[in-house]
Write a protein that binds this DNA or RNA. Structure first.
Lengths: 259, 259
DNA sequence: CGTGCATTTGAGAAGAATCAATGCCCGTGG
DNA sequence: CCACGGGCATTGATTCTTCTCAAATGCACG
């Protein structure tokens, strides 16, 4: 891996930790523990392979900066991107259940990632039920994201799928504070979008023109502006998904901490 | 729900508990605890809705007998089955991360299910790190199943998808001890298969004829016989997925038990 | 021996893939 | 300063896959 070690303090406060607090309100002390899970962040160039397919998983990763993706590749060269990773995402966690990784992790832009060895992760998981609960809920939430992708790919047209993808990216970037009003920078090519949606590059282009013609989005270079948010939601058959909030059945105050 | 209460001992030893031991070798005492999670099993007829879409999740389910599925339904009536559930499966777990359930759980045959209230599940999850680890790994394994479905639907032809579905059902039934040699009973209609694969009923029928003509499977009524297992695997671009076995990073002996 | 559900078949239409150019933007080197 | 080349986006023409509509067949069950 063609990587560059970074001064850790440079990124440790910038990274979007918002994903860890989605389900459990961690205390500052707990947040410190979670930050301690990762190795020193490393920078990788665009197209770098962060983790290979069909190797034994010994770690997973946090994406601190940039965009990346998980790709399943077949012998004949076909590939399908099964997850677009945005800043703050954990990457490679499903593989911990397997003897061999199921997918590639690839940088779509220059990225900064931190490697989390399974040993260190396991220690915290076992010692902190609150952390275990957060990880469990987060895995279940990712299953929902996959379920949504699967149902969309099976039952909606190409342009509806594109609309849904743009909405998904918009909402996730907004949660990470990476949008300005209804605009965001789409850091991926149409070829990558084709790999995400399971379409051909040519057809993605035509779908783009369609959602533009319908007055749902505007494009100028890489900047996407949502022209009509509610119309876009309707067109994409968008289903709002709010996080569970009543979690006292699984999330309790941390007994290892003094009140 | 049009349900019938059953004498519990009638089913408590029959159910396929094999799914719980996939990652963690539980002791008999632990198994007892896990069995105690579920309410008294109930029987439901075919097509019964086990859990509604867009309601608050307060429990999930174990499927003790029969087949069921998780379905995402859209306003216009389109629906996509996102998971085919076979005996032993946990059903509805992804919903615990949401304020509202994302899908319907529906019986595809007469079923026997047991309801697991979140409170009871949460107590065991918090008190037993081994159990928490098993649930975490199992959720990650389900993500892999969804990733595989997503990549197949995006990148393979209809008949390849059908071949992969038949293989998937065969292997899962074999793990539950519900196959005889290379034969199994396919308890679902072609319309259901269409909902699973994201195809039309008519095209499923033609795909069936294709895999039959290719000499990969044979059909007599509902009985499917795999005519050439390795050829079927190759045709379906089947990817073997073995469970992770080196789990000492997260699975430790249960400290609450005496040696 | 109907009746209802599931499977099968046919024909035409629509959606998406493929093949093949062309255009555009931008950085690089002459 | 401009010609060139590479990567990406766009367009056109054609082919192939899958869908839709419609009808017929088969099969189980009262």
């Amino acid at each position: 891996m063609n990587s560059v070690l970074l001064d850790s303090e440079q990124v440790l406060d910038s990274p979007p930790m918002h994903r860890f607090n989605e389900y459990v309100a961690f205390s500052p002390a707990e947040i410190e523990q979670i930050r301690g899970l990762g190795d020193k962040p490393i920078a990788l160039p665009r197209l770098a392979v962060i983790q290979e397919q069909e190797v034994q998983p010994t770690c997973f990763f946090v994406l601190l900066k940039g965009w990346a993706c998980a790709t399943v590749r077949y012998q004949n060269g076909d590939q399908q991107i099964t997850k677009l990773h945005l800043p703050g995402d954990l990457m490679g966690t499903p593989n911990v259940s397997l003897a061999q990784t199921a997918d590639f992790l690839t940088a779509l832009t220059p990225v900064i990632v931190s490697r989390i060895p399974l040993e260190r992760f396991g220690q915290l998981f076992v010692s902190s039920p609150r952390f275990a609960a957060a990880m469990f809920l987060s895995a279940q939430r990712e299953r929902i994201a996959l379920i949504d992708a699967l149902s969309r790919n099976g039952r909606t047209s190409s342009s509806e799928r594109l609309a849904a993808l743009l909405l998904d990216i918009y909402e996730r970037l907004a949660a990470a504070g990476c949008t300005k009003e209804l605009r965001f920078e789409l850091l991926i090519t149409q070829e990558i979008i084709a790999d995400i949606l399971g379409l051909s590059l040519v057809h993605v282009n035509r779908s783009f023109k369609k959602v533009e013609t319908l007055g749902l989005v505007r494009r100028t270079h890489k900047i996407i502006e949502i022209a009509d948010l509610s119309a876009l939601r309707e067109y994409a058959r968008w289903q709002a998904r709010s996080h569970a909030s009543q979690l006292n059945w699984i999330v309790h105050p941390d007994v290892t901490q003094a009140d």
